[in-house]
Design a protein around this nucleic acid. Sequence first.
RNA 1: CGGGGCGUAGCUCAGCUUGGUAGAGCGCUGUGUUCGGGACGCAGAGGCCGCAGGUUCAAAUCCUGUCGCCCCGACCA
Length: 589
Amino acid sequence: MATKWSNTLIPTARQAPADAVVPSHQLMIRAGLIHKLGSGVYTYLPLGLRALQKAMQIVREEMDKAGAVEVLMPTLQPIELWEQTQRREAYGDNLFVVKDRHGREQALGPTHEEIITDLCGTFIESYRDLPKTLYQIQTKFRDEFRPRFGVLRSREFQMKDAYSFHLNLDGEGGLSETYDKQYAAYCRIFERCGVPYEVVEAEAGPIGGNASHEFMVPSPTGEDFILKSDKGNYAANVEKCEIGDRPRNLEGDPTGDLESVNTPGCPGIEDVCAFFKKQLKTKLKTQNMLKTLVCKSGDTWVIGVIRGDHELNEAKLRKAAGVSDLEMADEKEARDAGFAIGFVGPQVAVGRNDVKLFVDPDAAQGGFWVTGANEVDHHVKHFNWKRDVVDAGAQVTVADIRNAVDGDPSPKNDGGVLQMTKGIEIGHVFKLGDKYTKALKIEVVNEANERVNPIMGCYGIGVNRILASAIERDGGNDENGIIWPASIAPYHVLITPIKYAGQAAEVADKLAVELEAKGIDVLIDDRDERPGVKFKDADLIGIPYRITLGDKALAEQSVELKARDGSNGPKGELVKMDAVVDQLVAALK
RNA sequence: CGGGGCGUAGCUCAGCUUGGUAGAGCGCUGUGUUCGGGACGCAGAGGCCGCAGGUUCAAAUCCUGUCGCCCCGACCA
């Protein structure tokens, strides 16, 4: 049965609430798709739910086609599992934890690696049971620091998560085979949902190599930064993005004598520049400063030096240092070890065996440098690598240790230049390895009757984000409202009788029956509203096709057919009544 | 978590500086005229001014606390 507008709940609004700042959020509320209950918590109203379910159905079909089988796991998860994998700590405050009446803690699942691994341990005992891919579509919970942008970053959201188990990485039944299948399924899913996407390399974790990809929808409201080579052969997110070869020069001559400058209360790069400008009446650019960051790995201090206008990439520094446990040093601990936090300079490495110094190529240059003086409230001018560090006897390693920025050389070293854009992450595929099976002591026997930890892949899709991305995309909205891709539109066709009475009502009902018989979803605007209101609402909710029934057209045994995306003209076209069903069936195929 | 801001009608907001019995537009109800791109008139309904204390003859307005929400930043599968 076709839905009648008067019978469902579509609370359209002329104005969006003040807290909606991005187009998808504003339109999802104005079109009556969602309603906010609390920070980052939304009700899906009938129109929004229909769109969500269409996206879920596409995901389901493609998962099944890729050989995954659906399950449904609990949201309420024993905290012990999270403690066993160290993820309670790793997730930190993002993990929702509730106490039951006995005082036992449970996590509200933000993802299900622990649960699926535990499940695997229970039922998968032999290599003969592998490979296996399971998935679910379920509500996930994350206690976000800052929920925002409506459904794009919420505390409660719908996610499809799939997990695969294997004995080997390569070969038949290996993790890579399933990974590739999932990757391909993701491409089909996003194509079918009508959202434009790009695949970028992401931080790979323990397995290394080509082990993680993110599916991103390019959009200025995205919260992730992605870099692409203008040669079109490389794309990665900012955490992962490598930078091509750059010149380095630790041999440059000093620009002057090392001179200490009193910079009271200026620990930051910006502070120092502002201080130079105001108090010393000298211009100092951030790119003429060296940022010296103190990290720690075991008992070794690992110091990263980058240009003042750049950001340290901890994963890169970890890799350069060849350690796995590197993190930013605790401030107090570092002070106690003799580091004047806020005023550290590379010279601090001179004469210390417990310090390893790593420098980014752009910081490993001659010329004029200002950096910390290793004394509280002091910086130095005319710092020089050769004189103050190398010849002074300290070891320096030059390595790519910073986040890439717009204009950096492509890591392909083919003359390509990296360009930075923002994107919305809608999917992520990841080769996990044995992290969870090891932590939870899950073993299967292989052909040689040895007990081994299976390796895993995990594959996630933010289903709500598909909706928001479809609206955010180019062509997904205009000044009048949403423009849905037909595949996830709440309805395919909106029938708008100017007045729902007499012949117009009869035709509306008849067309609805015929269209639904062909598998087309129909909404009839049967409200006793003025035409202008109906048209405005029609544009706002963005149903792909509108059939308008007015006296003039009906008198000619015709109806007006208008595509929401404007593809059949700004005023649509007149179509004979008995031809419109076939025409729509063809158009929606 | 740091910085900033906001809680007044379903929604958008004014009123607060300078305390004196609550306002507008949209929406809603009734009614009449309208009826192809968010009509107009008339008549109405609707608010413990987030909550709790305090100051005062008197608090939406001043003070304190508290809760909620938003923005910027930091953080992050």
